[in-house]
Structure formats: structure tokens, C-alpha cells
């Protein structure tokens, strides 16, 4: 049990610290690398909770795909983030005020939650015990049955994101040479190669 507690504090401390570094570091590439560190530590937290599927999903999807994509974008676009951040400091007092108010509200809520016993502590869908069923299976059991409606609707949301990205950014330029595979495949020797007899010392 002590090992679990030690690991919990280790993972959460590193996660919080690296999350802070994401916004604090000057170099955007460092920010992305710290983001990956955050994801890795949150994965550790998930696995401690017994949610190994979600943990590994975080590694595969967020670290493997999303963060690496971020890294590509940051490196290729060469945006001067230091320049962008310069103006942000002047909003600091307002931001700090809003943050403070939210923090105070949170503290009040958590205090209220800890104090009285009247709050129902129920869960919508209790997790089956890990000994009987792996949580990959537990998720799969409800994802396509109880939650099929959400699942399909969420799919539509992703489709809209895809259409939107294409609509807003894809431009067909008229003078670009494109690869037309069917034309390439349809070419044959007779159409494109012309054999000529070249007279000696005369040329064509």
C-alpha cells in the first residue's frame, strides 16, 4: 500500500510540475516535450487506479499521435511564441483575479462536500470488479450497447471537424502538377516512346 501511495505522489507531483512547465517554458519545443511528460505521468496515475486501458490509450493517442503532431506543427511553422506571449502579460491581473475567484469557489465547494454527510455518493455506472473482467472488456460492453447513441453522435462531431478543416484550408491551385495514378498506369510503350532511326553523323 505504501508503494502505491509513494507512486501516486510521485506521478502527481511530476505531472503538476511538468504541466506548469508547459506554460512557463520559453521554447515551444520544450513545452511540447513537457506536455508529453505530463501525459506519461497521468498514464501512471490511471494505471494505479486500475484503468490500464485508458492509461495506455493516453500514451498511444495523446503521446503517440497528438503530441507528436504538435511537435511537428511547432517545428515547421516557426511561430515566434515569445513575441505572442509578450502582450499576454498585460492581461495578467484580470486573469489572476478570475483565477482567484474560481479557486475560492472551488475551495468552498470542496469544503462543502467534505463537511456534510447529506451528499449522495452514487455513481451512474459502477465499475465491475477487476478480478472478474478486464476494463477493456468492461468498456467494450457498454460502448456499443448502452452508449451507442453517444458513440455515433461523437463520430458525427469528428466528421464535422474533418469537413471543416478541409473546407477552410484546402485550395485547388490551377497550375499545380498533380499525380494522376490512373493516367500513369494507363500509359504504354506505344503511346509514349517513339523510336527513330538516327542516320550516322547527321543527327535528327
Amino acid at each position: 500500500m505504501i508503494a502505491a501511495a509513494v507512486f501516486f505522489y510521485l506521478f502527481s507531483a511530476v505531472a503538476v510540475a511538468s504541466a506548469f512547465m508547459v506554460i512557463a517554458s520559453r521554447n515551444p519545443v520544450h513545452s511540447v516535450l513537457f506536455l508529453i511528460l505530463t501525459f506519461a505521468n497521468v498514464t501512471g496515475l490511471f494505471i494505479l487506479l486500475g484503468a490500464e486501458f485508458l492509461g495506455l490509450l493516453l500514451i498511444i493517442v495523446y503521446v503517440g499521435a497528438v503530441a507528436v503532431l504538435f511537435l511537428f506543427v511547432v517545428m515547421m511553422l516557426d511561430v515566434d511564441f515569445a513575441e505572442l506571449k509578450k502582450g499576454a502579460l498585460q492581461y495578467m491581473p484580470v486573469g489572476a483575479l478570475v483565477g482567484l475567484v474560481l479557486l475560492a469557489e472551488l475551495v468552498m465547494i470542496i469544503g462543502a462536500w467534505l463537511a456534510p454527510a447529506g451528499v449522495p455518493r452514487t455513481v451512474a455506472a459502477p465499475i465491475p470488479p477487476a478480478a472478474q473482467i478486464t476494463n477493456t472488456e468492461a468498456l467494450a460492453r457498454v460502448l456499443y450497447t448502452d452508449f451507442v447513441f453517444y458513440f455515433q453522435a461523437a463520430g458525427l462531431v469528428l466528421l464535422v471537424a474533418m469537413i471543416g478543416a478541409i473546407v477552410l484550408t484546402l485550395r485547388h491551385k490551377p497550375n499545380v502538377r498533380r499525380q494522376d495514378i490512373s493516367r500513369q498506369v494507363a500509359r504504354n510503350k506505344e503511346d509514349v516512346i517513339e523510336l527513330r532511326k538516327v542516320p550516322f553523323r547527321r543527327g535528327l
Binding site: 453517444y150 453522435a153 461523437a154 464535422v160
Partner: peptide, 23 residues
């Protein structure tokens, strides 16, 4: 609440795109 949120996002995301349609 979940259906509310998914519906809201589906609605809004498409609208964000068509607002910028004249790109």
C-alpha cells in the same frame, strides 16, 4: 447531460465552420 453536450458540440462546430465559409 452527455447527450446535451454532444448535440451542442455537433451543432456549434458546424456553425463555426460556416461562419468562416467566406474564407
Amino acid at each position: 447531460l452527455i447527450a446535451l453536450y454532444i448535440g451542442l458540440e455537433l451543432q456549434s462546430l458546424a456553425i463555426y465552420v460556416i461562419c468562416a465559409f467566406d474564407r
